[in-house]
Design a protein around this nucleic acid. Structure first.
Length: 514
RNA sequence: GGUCCGUUCGUCUAGGGGUUAGGACUGCAGAUUUUCAUUCUGCCAACAGGGGUUCGAUUCCCCUACGGACUACCA
C-alpha cells in the first residue's frame, strides 16, 4: 500500500546550476536515499527561447561531482523515459484537452497587445491585482466569452491560441507543506495561468504536474519561489483527477546573497567574491556576446565532500553538535522536518573551514597525489615518499590542495634572498660561526631525523658558548629565506643533511660578503 | 500595490512557557610552537518592536516593523 518514494530534481537548462539548485538536488537525493526511494532528474526545457547549449551536460556533470546519484534520467534511462520535456511534447496535449472537456480550462485568443492593454487598463484603474482571472476573463477573447461557432472557426483556421486554467472565483485552496505546515490561499489571488502555449508547448505548470503524476513522484522538494504557484498545482491535480496520489510538497527556504538582499541567482556569477557554481562555467555575455568564465568550487580547490557537507547545513541540521558528515551520514540523519523555514546566507569562512577539515583528514598518500600533480605542472619532479613526507608536514597550513605545492616550494628552490629584518637584528659573526660549524658537521651526521638534527645543532651551538635560541631564527632564514614556515627541523630532515649544509654555507658566504 | 512566506549572537543554527538561551564559523585574548600556521583554553556576541494569554513569555495568539518570494504564452 505504501508507495515507493520517488523524488525528482527538475531544473531547466537555461544555464549552469547554482549552489541553491545543488542544495535542492541534494535534499531530494538525501530524502530518496533515506527512505529507500528513487531520485530522478528531469530536464524542463519547455521554453525553447531560453535553451542554453551545454547547460544540460553541466547539470549532470555538477551533480556527479557532488556525489548526487541519479537513478532515472536522461543518461540513466528508466521506466518513464524520455526524461526531457521537449521530447515528451505530444503527451501533454491530451491533458489540456481533458481539462477543457471537463470545463476546467478554456481557449484564449488574446494577442500580446490585448493582454498588455488589459493590464494597463487594470493598473490605471488601481485594481489591486491586475491579472487574467475569473473577473477579467469575461472581457477577453476566449472560448468562455466568444460564441461557440466563432471559437470553432478560429480553431479551424488555426488562429493562435493558448489554453488557460479556469480558476474558480471563490474557493480556499489549501495544502500541507512538509516544511511550512498548512498553507492557505484564496483562489481569487490565483490567475488563469496559461497551460498550453501558442507554440504547442506546455508551460511549466502543466508539464510539471503531468510528469510528476506520470513518473509517480511522491515528494516535490523545490525552492520557495514555487510556493505562490503551489495552489495552482493543487488545483491541477484535483481537476485532472489525481488528487489521491498528489505528491507531498516541501518548499525549501531560499539561499540569499551574503548581504541578504535578494536570492542568489545565476547572474551573480563571480560578483559576490565567491563561486556561485559548483563547476566552472563558460558562457557568453548576454549583451556583448563575449565569452565569459564563471569560477566553480571544483576549480577553486574545494573538495566535493566539504562543499556538500557545508551546503547540507545551510538550512538543515541534525539537531546534534556534530558538524562533519559524510554523504552516508547525511543520508542516515536527514529528515525533511528539520529543514528550517527561514532563508540562509552564504558564509565563505565556513566553506573554507569545511574544506580545511576534509583536506587534513585525507590520508597522506592522497595528499601526496595532489602535491605531485601540482609539482608536475611546474616541471618539478619529486619521489613519492618525499612528497608524502612534505604533504604530511604542510597539510596543516593548507586550505586547498593547491596550497600544498605552494607550501612545498621551499623544498625545491634554494632561497634567493634572506629576510632582512632577521638578518639585521640577529646576524653577527658569532652566529655565522656557529652556523658554519653546524654546516660542517651536517654531512657526517649519523641521525638525520628532526630530533637528531636538533640534538646536533644544540651540541654545536652550545660548544660555541651560545644558546640555540640565538641561532634558530637565523638558521631558518638561511635554509628557507623566510621567517614563516613549518617546523624547521622537519624541513631540514626532509631536505637532507647535505642539501641543508649547502644552503647554510651559501647563506653564510653571501651574508658575510654583503 | 496585491498574495504568500519568514524574523534567536556579524553568519549558520540548537532550544523552548520558568535555561547562566547551547554549539559551529568569524573576531579578540592567552597557552603551546623561541617563527607563521596548526592545536588547546578563554572572551566578545542574539530571542525585531508593541500588545495580549499566563503566576511567569524569547517560546502561544494578535498587530506593527523589517526582510524575502511571487505577481509572463520563464522556469
Amino acid at each position: 500500500m505504501e508507495r515507493e518514494v520517488r523524488v525528482r530534481f527538475a531544473p531547466s537548462p537555461t544555464g549552469p546550476l547554482h549552489i541553491g539548485g545543488v542544495r535542492t538536488a541534494l535534499y531530494n537525493f538525501l530524502l530518496a536515499r533515506k527512505l529507500g526511494g528513487k531520485m530522478l532528474l528531469r530536464i524542463e526545457d519547455t521554453d525553447q527561447n531560453r535553451f542554453v547549449p551545454g547547460a544540460e551536460q553541466y547539470i549532470m556533470d555538477a551533480l556527479r561531482w557532488c556525489g548526487i546519484v541519479i537513478d532515472e534520467g536522461i543518461e540513466e534511462g528508466g521506466p518513464h523515459a524520455p526524461y526531457r520535456q521537449s521530447e515528451r511534447k505530444p503527451m501533454y496535449r491530451q491533458y489540456a484537452q481533458q481539462l477543457i472537456e471537463s470545463g476546467h480550462a478554456y481557449y484564449a485568443f488574446d494577442t500580446p497587445e490585448e493582454l498588455d492593454a488589459m493590464r494597463a487598463r487594470l493598473t490605471a484603474a488601481k485594481v489591486p491585482n491586475p491579472q487574467y482571472n475569473s473577473i477579467t476573463r469575461t472581457q477577453m477573447r476566449n472560448s468562455l466569452t466568444l460564441p461557440e461557432d466563432e471559437v470553432k472557426q478560429l480553431l479551424d483556421n488555426e488562429a493562435p491560441y493558448v489554453i488557460r486554467l479556469k480558476v474558480p472565483r471563490k474557493e480556499e485552496i489549501r495544502f500541507n507543506d512538509l516544511i511550512r505546515g498548512w498553507v492557505v490561499v484564496h483562489s481569487s489571488a490565483v490567475d488563469d495561468k496559461v497551460l498550453m502555449k501558442s507554440d504547442g508547448m506546455p508551460t511549466y505548470h502543466l508539464a510539471n504536474i503531468v510528469d510528476d503524476h506520470l513518473m509517480e513522484i511522491t515528494h516535490v522538494i523545490r525552492g520557495e519561489e514555487w510556493l505562490p504557484s503551489a495552489p495552482l498545482h493543487v488545483l491541477l491535480y484535483r481537476y485532472l483527477g489525481w488528487e489521491a496520489t498528489m505528491p507531498q510538497f516541501a518548499h525549501l527556504p531560499l539561499l540569499l546573497k551574503p548581504d541578504g538582499t535578494g536570492k542568489l541567482s545565476k547572474r551573480d556569477g563571480d560578483k559576490l567574491g565567491f563561486p556561485v557554481f559548483p563547476l566552472e562555467w563558460h558562457g557568453t555575455d548576454a549583451e556583448s556576446g563575449q565569452p565569459t568564465v564563471s569560477s566553480g568550487y571544483r576549480e577553486s580547490g574545494y573538495l566535493p565532500e566539504a562543499f556538500i557537507n557545508f551546503l547540507a547545513f545551510l538550512g538543515w541540521n541534525p539537531g546534534t553538535q556534530q558538524e562533519l558528515f559524510t554523504m552516508d551520514e547525511l543520508i542516515e540523519n536527514f529528515s525533511i522536518e528539520r529543514v528550517s523555514k527561514s532563508p540562509a546566507r552564504f558564509d565563505q569562512n565556513k566553506v573554507r573551514w569545511y574544506n580545511e577539515q576534509y583536506l587534513r583528514a585525507k590520508p597522506d598518500t592522497e595528499l601526496a597525489g595532489y602535491l605531485l600533480e601540482s609539482l608536475q605542472a611546474q616541471g618539478i619532479s619529486c619521489p613519492t615518499d618525499k612528497a608524502e613526507q612534505i604533504a604530511a608536514l604542510v597539510k596543516e597550513r593548507a586550505t586547498f590542495p593547491a596550497d600544498l605545492a605552494r607550501e612545498a616550494q621551499l623544498f625545491f628552490h634554494r632561497p634567493t634572498s634572506y629576510d632582512e629584518q632577521v638578518i639585521s637584528k640577529k646576524w653577527n659573526a658569532q652566529v655565522a660561526g656557529a652556523l658554519a660549524a653546524y654546516a660542517q658537521e651536517l654531512p657526517s651526521a649519523a641521525d638525520t631525523s628532526p630530533e637528531g638534527l636538533k640534538a646536533l645543532l644544540t651540541q654545536v651551538v652550545e660548544s660555541q658558548g651560545m644558546k640555540i635560541g640565538q641561532v634558530l631564527q637565523v638558521l631558518r632564514v638561511a635554509v628557507t629565506g623566510i621567517t614563516a614556515g613549518p617546523d624547521l627541523m622537519a624541513v631540514m630532515s626532509i631536505l637532507g643533511a647535505q642539501e641543508t649544509a649547502e644552503r647554510i654555507e651559501a647563506a653564510v658566504s653571501q651574508l658575510v660578503a654583503s
